[in-house]
């Protein structure tokens, strides 16, 4: 390796450190409210708008799926013909032409289970919708109305499995929803959430394993907050919720 390249790489490395530092500094600055509550950072700080790839129902192991999927796109056409438009083909560098559920906010999977019937290679297993495991829906407790002093039921009404997936921690504070691990990851709840840009995200199982502990501990912490304390947290979140509505206004008719 030439010295120049070495220095380039090193400087890139330091630059990225610098960026991370700036990044962290600005983050700390903006995080004052939550810092004061000793809470973990908001979950979606680590996720961009489009997080992980969600495969169609019937796909279980990602490696196995990639191995079997031949990119024929019959599943995508089937989904489109039925009017659901949930599936589309990836255009990235890796696994080009394989199907994903792209825009859950507008076109979630409805678990009609027609795509699994037409897959020629068995990359999508023919299972009943009860056995589907596309991913898990995670709730952003900072944005969810139910966790911030409002009574909202829309996600639970959209879910085709309701009570077996949605647990409600009713207190006189509201009906804090919690989506447990029975969730199939279809994304219907993501669509019907009234908060701008949705307060729910579906992540695939690998991503879930990475954030599971942090997510569950944040959940427990918020659940056990004392009433007065809860009040302060909630009131600092309300402005963010309203802001989301403005930022995502283009998504409404």
């Amino acid at each position: 390796m030439k010295r120049r390249s070495f220095i380039k790489i090193l400087s890139l490395f330091f630059a990225s450190l610098l960026i991370s530092a700036v990044d962290y500094a600005v983050y700390l600055f903006g995080r004052k409210g939550r810092e004061a509550e000793n809470l973990p950072p908001p979950l979606f700080r680590f996720f961009k708008d489009k997080i992980s790839d969600i495969r169609p129902p019937g796909a279980f192991n990602e490696r196995e799926f990639i191995a079997k999927c031949i990119g024929c796109s019959v599943c995508v056409s089937t989904c489109k013909n039925l009017g659901y438009n949930a599936l589309s083909l990836k255009s990235g560098l890796s696994d080009l032409g394989t199907p994903v559920v792209d825009d859950m906010r507008n076109y979630p999977c409805t678990l009609c289970m027609e795509c699994v019937k037409v897959c020629p290679t068995g990359a999508l297993n023919r299972v009943q919708k009860e056995k589907v495991k596309m991913g898990i829906a995670l709730i952003d407790f900072e944005l969810c109305l139910g966790w911030n002093g409002d009574v909202c039921l829309s996600c639970s009404k959209a879910c085709p499995f309701g009570a077996s997936i949605f647990e409600f921690y009713n207190s006189d504070w509201g009906n804090q929803p919690f989506i447990n691990e029975n969730c199939k990851g279809c994304g219907l709840c993501v669509k019907y959430c009234p908060v701008g840009g949705s307060a729910i995200r579906v992540v695939n199982l690998d991503e879930y394993e990475k954030v599971k502990d942090k997510y569950l501990s944040e959940f427990k912490l918020l659940l056990d907050l004392e009433h007065a304390h809860r009040y302060e947290v909630v009131y600092s979140n309300i402005a963010k919720i309203m802001e989301r509505g403005r930022v995502y206004e283009r998504e409404f008719q």
């Binding site: 109305l145 002093g149 409002d150 009574v151 909202c152 006189d172 504070w173 509201g174 009234p194």
Partner: peptide
């Protein structure tokens, strides 16, 4: 007690 429903919100 400080709570509203989505309509009120």
């Amino acid at each position: 007690r400080g709570v509203l429903c989505t309509k009120g919100f």
